[in-house]
Nucleic acid binder design. Structure first.
Lengths: 170, 170
DNA sequence: TGTAGATTGACAGCATACTGACAATCTTTG
DNA sequence: CAAAGATTGTCAGTATGCTGTCAATCTACA
């Protein structure tokens, strides 16, 4: 009497696997975001970076990567592109020659204000096929799961506590 | 009396957004997969491709991309890497000179058998932090959502019906 | 003080993902 | 049969994401 039936090597097993569903949903989410925001030429990641810099002006790249759970290596090129679009400025930190501080430019702050409605539409569209009650349940479980699995990724989210030494914490 | 409060431009709004949660969870899922399967040097995507080829021997690249909802452009390099590892063979189709048919090699079939337990462990670990009942609810909602949003991505999933003309369908 | 260790940003290299284009080839239709 | 149109695989280009390395710099400790 086998306690676990052997998984058949079938594509249907893949369709039901959590990893597959998460990958697929991410794909769909990015696609919807890009569609709603195509007038702004901003990717989801660039948007998150702008928001984070807006929330924490003068943050450095390493801390930014912790705040949006984003790989430090990749973040360099993301910032470069935001800089090329003149949405972000980098200033050397006076007390630490290694660090470059990040600030939104005026057009960076402006595009952030303008893109918000499109982002809202995108976020709403992702969940639209579900009944309102189910949307809440799904978001609740996803929030839990992401939080409880935080340490499993290379770049765990370190939201506020990563910024304490900046002296901005409320 | 405003019907919708304006969303504040804050990083906390990002943390609660579906798009962010899906991206984050995907990151975590890949990380867990790679950790459990590091002995096998296979990525999640390469694994899915192997399974699909196993299920549909003699499939071509375009149909494969439909079966795993995977971009056709990207798939080329994925297959190349699987070929380099000698897990996959490509044979020209006799009746259509454009098409190259895909088959698993013996070592491809072998690694598939061997990696299954590691993949199962990975899939289980992704949901482990949740209570068993919640896991079912989450998977149910994700399955629904991915299915109902199928057309929203560039490469909608076309599982079996994409393969009818191959004469393998049940 | 001096140096070992940590941090920061940059880079090289690999692997998804997407857009758009292209030649070769097949199919449809006049 | 010939031309128009569709399909297939491939490529160039851009943008995440990851591992690992490195020099410059800062910190902590002997």
């Amino acid at each position: 009497m086998p306690s676990k039936p052997a998984t058949p090597i079938t594509i249907d097993a893949v369709y039901a696997a959590p990893g597959y569903l998460f990958r697929r949903m991410q794909q769909i989410a990015v696609s919807i975001f890009m569609e709603e925001c195509k007038a702004f030429d901003l990717t989801p990641v660039q948007y998150a970076a702008l928001i984070a810099i807006h929330t924490h002006p003068g943050i450095d790249a390493t801390r930014l990567s912790a705040v949006i759970a984003f790989d430090r290596s990749t973040l360099g090129s993301v910032i470069e592109r935001l800089q090329a679009k003149a949405y972000v400025e980098r200033k050397p930190a006076p007390e630490d020659k290694r660090i470059k501080l990040l600030y939104l430019t005026k057009s960076g702050a402006a595009i952030l204000r303008e893109i918000i409605p499109a982002v809202e539409r995108a976020q709403a569209r992702m969940l639209e096929p579900l009944k309102p009650a189910d949307r809440k349940v799904l978001m609740g479980l996803m929030t839990q799961l992401v939080d409880l699995n935080n340490e499993a990724s290379r770049v765990p989210l370190r939201a506020e506590d990563a910024l304490e030494h900046l002296g901005k914490g409320g």
